[in-house]
């Protein structure tokens, strides 16, 4: 029996937010790394406690960030979960040179980028793939390409016709089954499936136009 309750600490009253800074943290320079001093201290006394704090501070923003790329709650949480698992089981916390925050966010962004390119590759026709000359120097070395990607995904989703977008979000984002959506929207199962197919295609087509070369290169 899984007893998640063991890991729950006292609920924090609603609307409470707290940040702990180093004294000079407010000036946003120099003190940045040290703002994780409490987490590092926690790791010193117990790894589990450190991990728990990492979850507390970063799990929500990380999932929220990942979902912008993959537009699925489930996939986003899988990605974040994988990263925490690796971080913990391979004891990466012992060797990271950056802040834990920077490490976790970078990993999530890489993994999400990976995921999008996998999806594109899976659906790319061989013809296109052959035409594309892969240039390794086109790997995403600029940080802004990550923001560009999730913003393009967001715009692609937004560009879907209203009904299609709704079905897409219900399925991908809220994790509802085709049949559930059909019942909820009073549509036939076929319509839902067709709309989902169209939506996925449309989004991929939009992303591919701009990203195919880069994402493919990134995969090498």
């Amino acid at each position: 029996m899984e007893k998640a309750g063991n890991f729950n600490r006292t609920e924090i009253p609603e609307g409470v937010s707290m940040r702990i800074f180093e004294e000079d943290g407010g000036r946003n320079r120099g003190g940045n790394l040290d703002s994780e001093i409490l987490i590092r201290k926690a790791f010193e006394s117990s790894v589990n406690q450190g991990i728990e704090l990492l979850f507390k501070y970063y799990y929500r923003p990380l999932c929220s960030h990942a979902v912008r790329y993959v537009s699925s709650k489930e996939v986003a949480e899988d990605i974040v979960s994988d990263i925490f698992f690796k971080f913990h089981s391979e004891q990466i916390f012992r060797e990271v040179k950056t802040s834990f925050r920077a490490y976790l966010f970078t990993s999530v962004r890489h993994r999400a980028f990976d995921y999008v390119s996998m999806e594109l590759k899976r659906t790319a026709s061989m013809q296109v793939a052959e035409c594309v000359a892969i240039k390794p120097e086109q790997q995403p070395d600029q940080i802004t390409q990550y923001e560009d990607l999730y913003q393009d995904v967001e715009n692609a989703v937004n560009s879907l016709p209203f009904k299609r977008r709704r079905i897409f979000i219900m399925h991908r984002f809220e994790g509802k089954k085709h049949l559930e959506i059909a019942e909820e929207l009073n549509l036939s199962l076929r319509t839902v499936e067709a709309q989902m197919f169209q939506a996925t295609h449309q989004i991929r087509a939009l992303i591919r136009d701009k990203w195919f070369v880069l994402l493919l290169a990134f995969m090498q």
Partner: peptide, 27 residues
């Protein structure tokens, strides 16, 4: 770059895409 991620974290917290359940994640 560290500052960039501090801001990214802040921005995500202010614009959460959905209500993420930490307890499920930790469990």
């Amino acid at each position: 770059l560290e500052q960039f991620y501090i801001w990214l974290q802040e921005w995500e917290l202010e614009n959460l895409q959905y209500e993420v359940d930490i307890d499920t994640g930790t469990a």
